[in-house]
């Protein structure tokens, strides 16, 4: 095992791992409330794409870009050597309510340069779709699914855009939208009725059902055999042994 800033137990990692992070604790930063190197570079590289720039909570720089150019600009920020935002810290959305556009928020962090940047895209409620960045960062896979689940924003080109926290057949809408009431859209009675009438088949996605030899897993005589079927498989499926 290697140690960082190893004053007590110096270790040695393979050389290939070293360049990923400069050593030592951060003593100074090139980001100030007035200036952020990536923002300045964005302005010169994509002059018309930086719609708005603001500084929030001290020294946190926020850049607003048009949603149709998110892939191009984020890809540049990730791959350009002097920026290298290789760590997608967070991807989320904000609904301000009152019919205002939804914001998709990308929180980037450059492990090499130790720099953070927040990029926002505003999506009008009539066109809730944006290109997926899961091709740039694998981390976006689940984060985009969560935004889709909670806000109903569609991510074009996402490999597997399904609900993630709510059940796949959840019919009440997208919970984190401001027009969604805290207790849900359906009455308690309706929610209970739906919960009780769940079909074991709903717990699986079509891909999984395709893997399973359906008649075997979900036996012919009703769904009570579904649990039995998977139990059998756990114990070894060959009845002769």
């Amino acid at each position: 095992m290697a140690y960082r800033q190893g004053d007590s137990q110096p270790g040695s990692g393979p050389e290939t791992l070293r360049p990923l992070v400069p050593s030592g604790a951060r003593t100074s930063t090139d980001v100030t409330p007035e200036r952020h190197p990536s923002v300045a570079a964005l302005r010169s590289q994509f002059p018309e794409a930086v719609l708005h720039h603001e500084v929030s909570a001290g020294d946190q720089h926020v850049v607003h870009i048009p949603p149709e150019r998110n892939l191009q600009i984020l890809g540049w920020l990730k791959n350009a050597d002097e920026h290298r935002y290789d760590f997608l810290a967070d991807l989320t959305a904000v609904d301000y309510g009152g019919g205002r556009p939804l914001q998709v928020v990308y929180q980037l962090w450059s492990i090499w340069h130790r720099r953070a940047l927040r990029v926002k895209c505003a999506l009008p409620l009539t066109a809730l779709a944006i290109d997926s960045v899961s091709g740039l960062w694998q981390a976006a896979d689940w984060l985009e699914r969560e935004v889709y689940d909670m806000f109903g924003i569609e991510f074009r080109g996402h490999p597997d855009l399904r609900r993630i926290l709510m059940p796949e057949n959840y019919a009440e809408g997208h919970p984190l939208r401001k027009d969604f009431p805290l207790r849900g859209r359906f009455s308690r009675a309706e929610q209970t009725r739906r919960a009780l009438s769940q079909d074991p088949r709903d717990y699986y996605i079509p891909e999984e059902l395709a893997i399973a030899d359906e008649p075997q897993v979900f036996g012919g005589e009703g769904y009570s055999s579904a649990a039995k079927g998977s139990g059998n498989e756990q114990g070894g499926s060959n009845p002769q042994r």
Binding site: M1, A2, Y3, R4, Q5, G6, D7, S8, Q9, G11, G13, P14, L17, L20, V21, S23, G24, A25, R26, T27, F87, I111, R114, A116
Partner: peptide, 27 residues
């Protein structure tokens, strides 16, 4: 996985930079 990224070192808060500690890194 060999990446020595620790928020306490790289983006310190609450004077973590003044504490003396190591960040173990795997290989």
């Amino acid at each position: 996985s060999g990446v020595a990224y620790d928020v306490r070192k790289d983006n310190p808060y609450y004077d973590y930079e003044t504490y003396d500690f190591d960040v173990p890194v795997g290989e």
